[in-house]
Amino acid sequence: MSTEKKIDVSIKDFFNENREELSLELVSGKEGMSNKISVVEPHHPGLAFAGFTDYVSEDAVFIMGEVENSYLKHISPARRSLNLNRMFEKRFPCMIMGNDIPVSKILKMLSNKYSIPMFSSKANTNMLFHRTNVYLSSRLAPSITFHGTLVDIYGIGVLISGKSGIGKSECALDLIDRGHRLVADDAIKIFRRGEHILMGTGIAPDSALQYHMEVRGVGILDISKIFGIRGVRLHKRIEIEINLIEWKMDTDVERVGLKEETTKILDVEIPLVKIPLIPGKNVSVIAEVVALNHLLKISGYDTAKVFNATLIKLMQEKAKKLARLDEDVE
């Protein structure tokens, strides 16, 4: 696994990628289009407009609307100029004026003076906050590149791992033939959403190379062309990892299922199932069963635990019967 060091987004990229959706128009401060955003949550400028600028983030997008604009109109010009200058001196990345409100002359002047892009938008502030947060959550999410194969099996994102040449792609190919869907093969970009969700996609999801797979002895295959749209999908939440390992006499593998192994990716813990490989083992069927068993656990039914509890109950009942026989004196 290798770490992706994508920790910020330029204002230029933010503007180009959200211009239509957020109805953005650059009003002033175009010299600051290279400014960087590195904080996910957009901020209100409320307290800063009142003169309290101690917590003005230098890395966050600021969004203002009718309330903030009305406040600026109701304070004296001298105080307005002083408070706004204090805020803009913090050199935050950019500011968006929502609700199609005209940008005042002083905001334009300070935007140009400090090279802080000022945008206007026809969208309301609630939508601006929501969509900006969603966009930045994706762009600023911690991510890694993972060597393996990601397949959607019965709606469960299964990450197939193992050393090079062990048969990950061949297993995935069989699964696709059985009706499941490929997300990415060989190099998978995994990123974290929130605190507990892992999402996986190809390293070039917008590229024509997204669904290509190398099968040793055959060559490069275009899965989307061979199996059609039903055999692929753009991205998928990763819920379980299957690790293919070589079988050895001293290989320690789980036999019952009571001991659940886990692995951590980007500090998110997911179940780990190790499958030792021997000639003749149908790995794709086992992968399907792993996904189905995971679905059962999600619904509240753990086969191994139920089996163990039932077995203990039967042993206890048998012990009681034997105890009654011991009390028989005839």
Score class of each variant (00 low, 15 high):
residue 223 I to E: 13
residue 224 S to R: 15
residue 224 S to M: 12
residue 224 S to F: 12
residue 224 S to G: 11
residue 225 K to R: 15
residue 225 K to Y: 12
residue 225 K to P: 03
residue 227 F to R: 14
residue 228 G to N: 14
residue 229 I to W: 12
residue 229 I to A: 15
residue 230 R to V: 14
residue 231 G to R: 01
residue 231 G to C: 14
residue 231 G to H: 08
residue 232 V to G: 03
residue 235 H to I: 04
residue 238 I to D: 10
residue 238 I to A: 09
residue 239 E to G: 13
residue 240 I to N: 11
residue 240 I to F: 10
residue 240 I to M: 09
residue 241 E to P: 06
residue 242 I to N: 04
residue 244 L to Q: 04
residue 245 I to E: 11
residue 246 E to P: 02
residue 246 E to M: 12
residue 246 E to F: 07
residue 247 W to D: 10
residue 247 W to T: 02
residue 247 W to M: 01
residue 247 W to R: 00
residue 247 W to C: 01
residue 249 M to L: 05
residue 250 D to M: 15
residue 251 T to F: 06
residue 251 T to S: 11
residue 252 D to I: 11
residue 253 V to T: 11
residue 253 V to L: 10
residue 253 V to S: 06
residue 253 V to P: 04
residue 254 E to P: 05
residue 254 E to S: 10
residue 255 R to T: 12
residue 257 G to P: 08
residue 258 L to G: 07
residue 260 E to P: 07
residue 260 E to K: 14
residue 260 E to V: 10
residue 262 T to C: 13
residue 265 I to A: 05
residue 266 L to R: 10
residue 267 D to S: 14
residue 268 V to F: 07
residue 268 V to N: 12
residue 268 V to T: 02
residue 268 V to D: 04
residue 270 I to S: 09
residue 270 I to H: 09
residue 272 L to V: 02
residue 273 V to Y: 09
residue 273 V to Q: 03
residue 275 I to Y: 02
residue 275 I to D: 05
residue 276 P to L: 07
residue 276 P to G: 05
residue 277 L to Y: 08
residue 277 L to T: 04
residue 279 P to Y: 07
residue 279 P to F: 01
residue 280 G to P: 07
residue 282 N to H: 07
residue 282 N to F: 02
residue 285 V to F: 07
residue 290 V to I: 06
residue 290 V to E: 00
residue 291 A to M: 07
residue 291 A to T: 09
residue 291 A to D: 05
residue 293 N to H: 11
residue 294 H to Q: 13
residue 294 H to W: 08
residue 294 H to D: 09
residue 295 L to V: 09
residue 296 L to K: 08
residue 297 K to N: 13
residue 297 K to R: 15
residue 297 K to A: 14
residue 298 I to Y: 02
residue 299 S to Q: 14
residue 300 G to E: 00
residue 301 Y to I: 00
residue 301 Y to N: 00
residue 301 Y to L: 01
